[in-house]
Write a protein that binds this DNA or RNA. Structure first.
Length: 441
RNA sequence: GACCCCAUCGUCUAGCGGUUAGGACACCACCCUUUCACGGUGGAUGCACGGGUUCGAGUCCCGUUGGGGUCGCCA
């Protein structure tokens, strides 16, 4: 039998990181088993359910590369995939319950009569869980205004959509006996359940919608790359059981299965995500890095001038600049600050670095020596610059660093940055001399 | 409060009765080095607690504590 799993988010205006992880695990299991991943939008009669809110879900899933096989914009034989369009189906199921005496009216609402017994939930991750439904008051399944309650529609849709494995957050574990009772009342064998642990904040508290880092969109905006976020999320609650961490998604798909899923909640560690993101950034092909970073430079206004400070055309210049910082970037958005001095003559300057190196005794003499050296350095390449710097220092009997540090601060305004010689090469002689000259006055 | 789930370094985790308790992030030191990173080497930090079972317990059982979840005419 083909595995059929589903992700059934409610359009709340954000895609929660926990929801994204649930979607990811469903997707992984579908891909691992060669099954079908269904996307169903649980937009049951709610004012907050807007088109924009639905788009946020699509965008988030697409960004993470979690493509669905059936659902909105994909279609399928079990639609419609919006609960708001499935009222007749729910009505039919409710009628069956009424007819069989399993549901009854109560002050205009319809309630489902719970079996007074201990229900056993067989769970692929948590094992066998027993919960007593006896003390539970019968649950409402239809409101007086005719709208349906989550538990009812969720079960009905899973039945109708032929879902074989319900993979969802552990917050649903306690509700599962109610769902089991519904399956029983409909005379349908229930799907297999797999309740996955929750994602908590770094401090162990529950991650709610308002917490920093709770929305997938934030990662997109901050310049995280989707493969890194996805890879990190895979490792939260699932383990390959050896020491593998950064893995291509194909490998994760191959190795993913329920036995390796943990039973305890995990805390979200932004530091580790950042590290992983930096790894992905550093190892990706330069073309892709440039494609991702150029729009940020554009947005920062760096590319507005026709010519770069070096005098050459802007676009090739910007690409060279990016190649200098690629391996130092933690988040893509870092490139804006890291490269500002390559594009703006009036870039910000770090007073601390200037005091430390430029105000140092002998610094202006060094810079003057550098000016005359750089005027005639030929060819203007990193290798040649390096050898010239070294010769100059050797001739004066001092360390090359005595020239390097002032030069760096002089042209960039800060004490840290890419390799100095490569930096100078990219900036070009005119720009470098211009900045040294300006500093003199 | 009742019920359910969970518990290994600060964090993510490996461990499925006998291990010097391993790895990763973060942290510290050193090395590399023109700075910052990267990389390399080394280090500190952990089995929540108390009872059992067993020759032997991080591993099994019970309890306690702690954390999380569920108890809606939210999803």
């Amino acid at each position: 039998m083909t595995t059929r799993v589903r992700f059934a988010p409610s359009p709340t205006g954000m895609l929660h990181i926990g929801g994204a992880r649930t979607a990811l695990f469903n997707w992984l299991y579908a891909r691992h088993t060669g099954g079908v991943f269904v996307l169903r939008i649980e937009d049951t009669d709610h004012a907050r359910n807007t088109q924009e809110a639905v788009d946020v879900i699509f965008k988030g899933l697409e960004w993470l590369g979690l493509d669905w096989d059936e659902g909105p914009s994909k279609g399928g034989n079990h639609g419609p995939y919006f609960q708001s369009q499935r009222r007749e189906i729910y009505q039919g199921y409710v009628k069956r319950l009424m007819d069989s005496g399993r549901a009854y009216e109560d002050h205009g609402a319809i309630r489902f009569k719970f079996p007074k017994q201990v229900m056993t939930v067989p769970d692929l991750i948590c094992g066998s869980i027993q919960i007593d439904l006896t003390p539970e008051p019968d649950m409402t399944i239809v409101r007086p205004d005719g709208s349906f309650i989550f538990h009812l529609v969720n079960v009905v849709d899973d039945i109708e959509m032929k879902i074989t494995h319900v993979i969802r957050g552990e917050d649903h574990l306690s509700n599962t006996p109610k769902h089991l009772a519904l399956y029983e009342a409909f005379g349908v064998p229930p799907p297999a359940f797999a309740h996955i642990p929750l994602i908590l904040n770094r401090d162990g508290s529950k991650m709610s919608k308002r917490d920093a880092g709770a929305a997938v969109g934030e990662y997109l905006d901050k310049g995280f790359i989707p493969e890194a976020v996805r890879n990190y999320l895979c490792l939260l609650g699932w383990s390959p059981k050896d020491d593998s961490e950064i893995m291509p998604i194909e490998e994760i798909i191959r190795r993913f299965d329920f036995p390796q899923i943990n039973r305890h909640n995990a805390r979200f560690d932004m530091d580790k995500l950042q590290w992983m993101n930096a790894k992905y950034l550093a190892t990706m092909p330069p073309e892709r890095f440039n494609a991702l970073a150029m729009p940020l430079l554009e947005k920062a206004g760096y590319l507005a001038a026709a010519r770069a400070p070096s005098g050459e055309e802007m676009s090739p210049y910007a690409q060279k600049v990016l190649s200098l910082v690629k391996e130092k970037v933690k988040q893509l958005s870092d490139v804006v600050d890291m490269t500002v001095f390559f594009f703006k003559d009036d870039h910000p300057r770090d007073p601390e670095a200037e005091t430390k190196t430029l105000k140092k005794a002998g610094a202006s003499e060094r810079l003057a020596e550098l000016r005359s050296l750089l005027e005639k350095t030929e060819p203007w390449t990193a290798a040649q610059l390096e050898s010239q710097f070294k010769q100059l220092a050797a001739g004066k009997g001092i360390k090359t660093a005595e020239y390097i540090h002032p030069a760096r601060v002089a042209v960039s305004g800060r004490g840290i940055g890419p390799s100095l010689y490569h930096m100078l090469e990219v900036m070009g002689r005119d720009c470098v001399l211009r900045r040294l000259e300006k500093l003199k006055g």
